[in-house]
Design a protein around this nucleic acid. Structure first.
Length: 409
RNA sequence: CGGGGUAUAGUGUAACGGUAGCACAAGUCCUUUGGGAGGAUUUAGUCUCGGUUCAAAUCCGAGUACCCCGACCA
């Protein structure tokens, strides 16, 4: 992509009404556009990141055997009345011109349970799991923190269906491992903790994945030694005893909830009639689990956690482009390199614009692409191009012949 | 939803009740080219409705939007 052809532009100043670091950087760099409080559009650069995040999640879930589907955002009130969740304030509800009303989905347990009821009749149909990556709507009373707590956001929701609780437990444990892998791949594994939280009707605890950050809304108590944390909401002596933790080893931290997984048991299968016939021809309720994670919130979290005072620092895994190529009045040479890197399948943002070096460097730091290559009179005289990592201060000279192979590795 | 605050050009900011100005961005021209360059020139603005006043960006009322704290967040 040529910078001169990108329809977005960088800005020196963030809008005065944005306080959250993630939104400030993402708006200044042209990744997102604010439509209204808690509602953001993803511009070309931002969408590339969002899609990269979604794809990592997709890959790891497919390894578990989960199948992707796409359910409707418009929800039928009837099935939500069966679970007593139609009256919740979180809904955006709207009237149908033909009469009646519908809601905009904020989660989809009801919907997928009804779908599953159409296809599950025998123990032979179990277990299975399915997920979607879909825009969700929540009528938050107060949106805040940039893209981290919006009224419209992208969420991955995974649901699993089992004959027995034991089978659910096994799958649940495998999701924990998959989630850890996802956070590692997203570059926030080191600061993300499996966190014990309130469980709900069918298990003593649910689990959250909390990424330590001052931008977070949650408070957790981290045990470095055990590599786990406890949400402040559930911290008491009984919980500590359960988990074999002592108060002395816990450190209080602010954190961002980047994932939340629940054992649902028969909370939804019962009211919605999802049952199966077992080996003894007995009818039993399906046991379910649900597992949430928000790509858009993850994008904000990555910005919050990894950026520095000059801008964003994307991990290789989610960066919109692998290489930020800057030409300082050497467009002939740079253009050639741009073509060669492209031919090798390297994604490159090529800054071919007129403009001063300082402005281009500042934009490169702001955008946060991991590798910067500069082609200039100075670099050519020194023997090639200059290469620098976003996270490093020093650059080095690499010849024009070697640079393509070096990047392709 | 309770409390507090803000609203001026695309963005950031000034203006005692008396001519809406500056910077950045954008357009044109010239110069410049390694950490947000310089000059000339152009474009572009007082959230909405009502009130007070000779006169309102400024004062008053209502509305709307946005931000912050709290509550909320299966």
């Amino acid at each position: 992509m040529k910078f001169s052809e990108l329809f977005t532009r960088t800005r020196k100043d963030a809008p005065s009404d944005e306080v959250a670091k993630n939104a400030q950087f993402l708006i200044r760099a042209g990744f997102i556009h604010k439509e209204m409080a808690g509602v953001y559009s993803y511009l070309p650069l931002g969408l590339r990141v969002l899609n990269n995040i979604s794809n990592i999640i997709r890959e790891e879930l497919e390894k578990l055997g989960a199948q992707e589907l796409q359910m409707t955002a418009l929800q039928n009130p009837e099935i939500w009345k069966k679970t007593d969740r139609w009256e919740q304030d979180v809904w955006f509800k709207t009237a149908l011109a033909a009469g009646g009303e519908v809601g905009l989905g904020w989660t989809q347990e009801e919907a997928i349970t009804r779908i599953a009821a159409q296809y599950v009749s025998s123990y032979r149909d179990l277990p299975f799991s399915a997920f979607q990556i879909q825009t969700k709507f929540r009528n938050e009373e107060r949106a805040k923190s940039g893209i981290m707590r919006g009224r419209e956001f992208l969420m991955k929701d995974l649901y699993s269906f089992h004959a027995t609780e034991e089978d659910l437990d096994l799958f649940y444990a495998s999701v924990v491992e998959a989630y850890k892998k996802i956070f590692e791949r997203l570059g926030i594994g080191a600061q993300t903790y499996l966190t014990f939280a309130s469980g709900g009707a069918f298990s003593k605890y649910s689990h959250e994945f909390q990424t330590v950050s001052d931008a977070g809304e949650d408070t957790i108590y981290v045990s470095e030694k055990n590599g786990i944390a406890v949400n402040k909401e559930v911290l008491n002596d009984e919980v500590l005893a359960d988990l074999g933790l002592t108060r002395e080893e816990l450190v209080e931290k602010k954190s961002i909830e980047v994932g939340n997984i629940f054992k649902l048991g028969t909370r939804f299968s019962e009211p919605l009639g999802l049952s199966y016939t077992d080996e003894k021809s007995e009818k039993k309720l399906v046991v379910m689990g649900c597992y949430g994670m928000g790509p858009s919130r993850l994008m904000g979290t990555i910005v919050e956690v990894l950026s520095d005072d000059r801008g964003i620092v994307w991990p290789e895994s989610v960066t919109p482009f692998s290489v930020h190529l800057i030409s300082l009045n050497k467009n002939d040479e740079a253009e050639k390199l741009y073509a060669e890197l492209g031919a090798k399948g390297i994604t490159v943002l090529y800054d071919d614009r007129e403009g001063s070096a300082g402005g281009k460097f500042a934009d490169a730091d702001l955008l946060g692409i991991p590798t910067r290559i500069v082609v200039s009179e100075k670099s050519l005289t020194a023997g090639g191009v200059e290469i620098k990592k976003r996270t490093e201060k020093e650059s080095k000279i690499v010849s024009l012949e070697e640079i393509v192979n070096m990047i392709s590795q």
